[in-house]
Nucleic acid binder design. Structure first.
Length: 375
RNA sequence: GAGCCCGUAGCUCAGUCGGUUAGAGCGCUAGGUUGUGGCCCUGGAGGCCGUGGGUUCAAUUCCCAUCGGGCUCC
């Protein structure tokens, strides 16, 4: 299912292929976030043909609350529902229970929470999130986990990790005894926790590896800890993950974050940053970060970078993009969102080429500095 | 011609029984955003309080005049 191709010599970066029934994913890869069955402001055709996304995310928590499992099942699953025939990964909703719900209750059985839509009470268990993700029909489903905040007491993090482990075992068992609903195979990823404590990270990695998931995620990072600390933990964590399984760093991050974590051996990423920041007027480019709201673009009657393959860059003047964002026009959100995703996927493409040619190690640190500066 | 109301930030307006450094929303401007409730959060700039005079220890506030805008009556 996952095949490694090339290993960078100076770093732990690697290229690989993850096979799903909806197509192959070339890693390292960035996965655009499409919480509610849509990558906000970008339609599926553009996502495939312009952004060149290989896989997108959906969210169990959001899709379970609306439209709900009944609609989803009668639609024939999320692929058919949203008209996307490429791979989909669904997050279990563990993160949302902790970030969105005001009232939640954690018990051995599962997590009870109140819907952010209507206040109604719901229970997510390791088993029923598998069921819901069977109904969604995602190519990759995530286990239910608890994502502790940062900072948190070590005892809390340790107990939380152990609960996640018990849930993981139940989730894996339920996954193995149930079957896909729509004729295509599904994979299940475990999630390593342990906060910023290396001994816990090691323990969690070993435990998750023992359950023989098809892939392993590093969870519980990019929740407010300093960037250097996140790097340190990822670097440590990948040393304790199996070589032959894809590694997915959840919720990360900036282009620089991606480059550094790829150097530490991560294969997959997702993050709201390219799309959310796009809607707030920030674009990421190979020359650095650009705030298109800045007055300096008001009179800039030319494109930002005609050599870059996004519509924003080769077709429209920055003065127009500035105007669209300042006016809160829908087209502004679309163009900046498409641009940022195009850039992220472009960056992953260059990364793969660099790793395969053996020039990643000497290239990525300079690129990190470049993409992180302000234009 | 007479009477009344209004004039405060770029815009729309609060405020003041006379008393620290005159406020808000929007706009402007600069940051932020990391397993997504798009239009959110944080900071900053910006005021001869229409103008001139008077009373007072102290006036955006009270008085007079004047300019500008509006309403009513003859």
């Amino acid at each position: 299912m996952f095949t490694l191709h090339q290993q960078s010599k100076q770093t732990k970066a690697r290229t690989g292929t993850l096979k799903t029934d909806h197509g192959e994913i070339q890693t390292p890869i960035f996965m655009p976030v499409g919480t509610l069955g849509t990558v906000k402001a970008v339609d599926q055709d553009d996502l495939l043909n312009k952004v060149k996304a290989q896989i997108i995310l959906g969210n169990t928590y959001h899709l379970y609350l609306r439209p709900g499992n009944e609609i989803m099942q009668s639609a024939g699953g999320l692929h058919k529902f949203m008209g996307w025939d490429e791979p989909i990964l669904t997050d279990s909703g563990g993160y949302q229970i902790f970030s969105l719900s005001d009232i939640r209750e954690l018990k051995e059985k599962g997590a009870t929470f109140k819907s952010h839509l209507d206040g109604s009470k719901h229970l997510f268990t390791p088993e029923n999130v598998v069921e819901t993700q069977r109904i969604l029909g995602s190519d990759i489903m995530m286990i239910l986990d608890e994502c502790p905040p940062y900072p948190a007491e070590r005892d809390y993090v340790e107990n939380s990790m152990k609960l996640t482990h018990r849930w993981a075992k139940r989730g894996r068992k339920h996954f193995l005894k149930t079957k896909p609903l729509y004729g295509h195979n599904q994979l299940q990823f475990g999630i390593v926790q342990g906060g910023v404590h290396k001994d816990l990270r090691k323990e969690s990695s070993q435990y998750m590896a023992s359950l023989d998931f098809e892939g392993l995620a590093i969870g519980g990072l990019s929740v407010g800890e300093p960037t250097e600390l996140m790097y340190d933990i990822t670097d440590f964590n990948t040393d304790h993950l199996p070589e032959n399984k894809p590694r997915y760093l959840m919720g990360v991050g900036t282009p620089a974050n991606l480059l550094q974590n790829i150097a530490y051996g991560v294969d997959m990423f997702d993050c709201v940053m390219p799309t959310r920041n796009a809607r707030n007027g920030m674009i990421f480019t190979r020359h650095g970060k650009v705030n298109v709201r800045n007055a300096k673009w008001k009179h800039h009657h030319k494109p930002f970078d005609t050599d870059f393959p996004s519509e924003l860059c080769h077709r429209y003047n920055m003065s127009y993009i500035h105007h669209l964002i300042k006016s809160n026009e829908i087209l502004g959100l679309e163009l900046t969102s498409k641009h940022n995703l195009t850039f992220y996927l472009w960056l992953m493409q260059v990364v793969k080429e660099r790793i395969n040619e053996g020039t990643f190690g000497e290239w990525y640190q300079d690129m990190m500095k470049t993409v992180d500066r302000k234009v």
